[in-house]
Structure formats: structure tokens, C-alpha cells
């Protein structure tokens, strides 16, 4: 079966955004039609087909096409569809924070949300923080990567590193809401992310540093 095109553009000229507005953001409200190759017709905007659909996601500022099933999580779409593997599958729910990404500016566990629910909302993954290079080097130029990533590197706030991308995204969201967070607030506000190696003691000063850096305008 060929993936069916879900984005509503073409004949009727309905924009994807308008289409989504009509469809409602929640996939739960989306009717499922069983049967092969069913097309989400523009006249029936609330219908998606069982099986693969091609959708367009706004990831790290780019419109990216990805094939998903109605049951595909955002995490699976990112990791397997777009090969953006920074967000990690650690828990079955949101309890590890390992798959944290920003959706419409808010932190969500990408494994607890369906890809279809994310159409039309800007998604930022850890890869969107400027660290596209796989180069192995301990020295980072200011401006090369996000200040949160840089502070994590400078404070050695990663060990095995598997939880780190989720942690970085959680910190990013936390500081967006609490740009002047005190150490006490940092200790209160970042308990959604699990680290097994025990990097918390390094994460705390890293976040303190980002707050300080922002204050100093660096």
C-alpha cells in the first residue's frame, strides 16, 4: 500500500493549517476508517486511514514529511521516520522524561503523544539546539550550540548520556518559564527526568550557570 497523503493541499486549495483547524488537534477525535488505501479526502477532513499516512511535521523549523500510522507515537516518528534519535525511549510513559521534546514551546514526552496530534505545531528536539555536528571535541565555541547544552558539557552533566537529551530539553522548557530560577527552584522544578548514572549533582550547577549567563547577557 502506498502511503496516503494526509496534508490537505491541492484541488480545493485548503491550507494544511485550515484543514487541521477543522480536524481538531486530538487524534482521539479523529475517526478511523478500516480498509486499505483509504484516502483522507478533503471533503471528509476528520478521516485518516488505518495504515501508513504521510504527514508533515514542523520539526526544528523544517517541514518534514514522515509516514505514520494513526497509532504511531511522536517518538517513533522522530526516531524511525526522521532519524532524529536524540529523544530516547526509556519508559513506557512519561515517567523518565527521556523523550522530552518541545511541542508548541511546551515540554512533552514524545512517547506519550501520537504523531498525528502534532501536525501543525512546532516541534523542537535536542537536535534543534544547534548541535548537528557529530564531531568529537571537548571544546565548544560560544554560540555554536545552545547555552543549555554548553553548560551541560562544561559541568560534565552527562555520563552514559542516554538521559541527557531529555534532560537538556526539560531544562530548556523550565528556564523558558523560570528564567531567573534559584538553585532551590531548580531542585524543585526538574524532577521529571530520571538519570541512572547520577548526573543530578552536575546538572544543578549547569542550570545555575545558564541562569547566570543569561543574566550577564552571554
Amino acid at each position: 500500500m502506498n502511503p496516503t497523503e494526509l496534508s490537505a493541499h491541492g484541488k480545493s486549495g485548503v491550507s494544511r493549517r485550515a484543514f487541521l483547524k477543522g480536524s481538531g488537534a486530538a487524534a482521539a477525535a479523529t475517526a478511523l476508517v478500516h480498509g486499505p488505501g483509504l484516502v483522507a479526502e478533503e471533503t471528509k477532513p476528520n478521516v485518516v486511514s488505518v495504515g501508513l499516512n504521510t504527514i508533515t511535521l514542523d520539526v526544528n523549523g523544517k517541514q518534514q514529511k514522515v509516514d505514520v500510522e494513526p497509532r504511531t507515537t511522536l517518538l517513533e516518528a522522530l526516531r524511525l521516520g526522521l532519524n532524529l534519535t536524540g529523544a530516547k525511549p526509556i519508559s513506557v510513559d512519561g515517567s523518565s522524561g527521556g523523550s522530552t521534546v518541545l511541542l508548541g514551546g511546551k515540554p512533552v514526552s514524545a512517547n506519550s503523544i501520537l504523531a498525528l496530534e502534532c501536525i501543525g505545531k512546532p516541534i523542537v528536539t535536542v537536535e534543534g539546539l544547534g548541535g548537528n555536528s557529530t564531531a568529537i571535541s571537548g571544546e565548544i565555541a560560544v554560540g555554536a550550540i545552545d547555552p543549555v547544552c554548553r553548560a551541560f558539557v562544561n559541568h560534565d552533566a552527562s555520563q552514559c548520556g542516554f538521559c541527557t537529551p531529555g534532560f537538556v530539553m526539560a531544562v530548556k522548557a523550565f528556564l523558558a518559564k523560570n528564567p531567573k530560577a534559584t538553585e532551590a527552584q531548580i531542585r524543585e522544578g526538574l524532577n521529571g527526568n530520571l538519570c541512572r548514572c547520577g548526573t543530578y549533582a552536575n546538572v544543578i550547577p549547569a542550570v545555575v550557570d545558564v541562569v547566570k549567563g543569561a543574566r550577564n547577557g552571554s
Binding site: 547544552c149 548520556g161 537529551p165
Partner: peptide, 22 residues
Amino acid sequence: SHNKVDGTAKCTGAAKYSYDIN
């Protein structure tokens, strides 16, 4: 006291684990 040479890869999601190889 040196930063890990692979610290940037780990903190930016560039580090590829076995789970990430596709």
C-alpha cells in the same frame, strides 16, 4: 579538569547508541 571530548555529542543528541542505529 577537562570536559569530556564526547560531551558535546552526548549533550546535543548527536551521540548514537545501539538503540539509535537505523
